[in-house]
């Protein structure tokens, strides 16, 4: 028998619950959530940072959990799709996705919703983007901004137009204004 792989203890908080794990150091945060904690809501689409299906919030900031080793998250607070809301008590973004049919197969959806929640916060916090007119000014809460910032979350079912409607509703943006914005290319 060859040498056992190194393991390491890690303690983190997931959806408000403390988790103490002993993990193979190669385990990603994504696999720790899915295979060790049993939270299967976060999806694996590529395992290479190419699709966004694995998006979770770490200390309030969205990351691709497949690109991060679990043992790097000692003491972090992780929020997954399960932590945002439940079928009985939906988060407003989850409710807006249902209302606007912002998904089809549903596989990219947890990642889209985690990203969508974070994107609205990023715009509010003034974090700049590529489509901003004035990079020194504050970004506008427009669908153009949202589309740009959501572009790391692939949806092969092609629900983008509906996701934009869902996000606009949660952001309180009138959709007519947002259409003008996108015609402005």
């Amino acid at each position: 028998m060859a040498q056992q792989p190194p393991t390491m203890a890690v303690s983190l908080e997931v959806n408000g619950e403390p988790q103490a794990l002993m993990l193979d150091t190669r385990t990603t945060l994504l696999d720790a959530l899915r295979d060790h904690i049993g939270l299967m809501g976060t999806k694996k689409g590529c395992d290479h940072g190419q699709c966004g299906a694995c998006t979770v919030l770490v200390n309030g900031i969205r990351i691709n959990s497949c690109l991060s080793l679990a043992v790097m998250h000692e003491g972090d607070a992780v929020t997954t799709i399960e932590g945002l809301g439940t079928p009985q008590e939906l988060h407003p973004m989850q409710a807006a996705f249902v209302k606007h049919d912002g998904f089809q197969c549903g596989y990219c959806t947890p990642g889209q919703i985690c990203s969508a929640v974070a994107v609205l916060d990023e715009i509010k916090a003034g974090i700049p983007s590529h489509v901003q007119g004035d990079i020194g000014g504050a970004p506008d809460m427009t669908v153009l901004e949202m589309r740009e910032r959501m572009s790391g979350n692939l949806c092969r079912c092609g629900a983008y137009s509906n996701i934009a409607e869902a996000m606009a509703e949660v952001a309180g943006v009138r959709i007519a204004e947002t259409h003008d914005a996108e015609v402005r290319v």
Binding site: R34, G38, L39, M40, G41, T42, K43, K44, T80, I81, E82, L84, G85, T86, P87, L90, Q94, A95, F97, V98, K99, D101, F103, G106, Y107, T109, P110, I113
Partner: peptide
């Protein structure tokens, strides 16, 4: 009407192939 499985899919409660216990 809204999808009858919409709440499951948007809350991460719909199990896909790899996820069944």
């Amino acid at each position: 009407v809204d999808r009858v499985d919409g709440k499951l899919k948007t809350t991460g409660q719909a199990p896909y192939a790899y996820e069944h216990s």
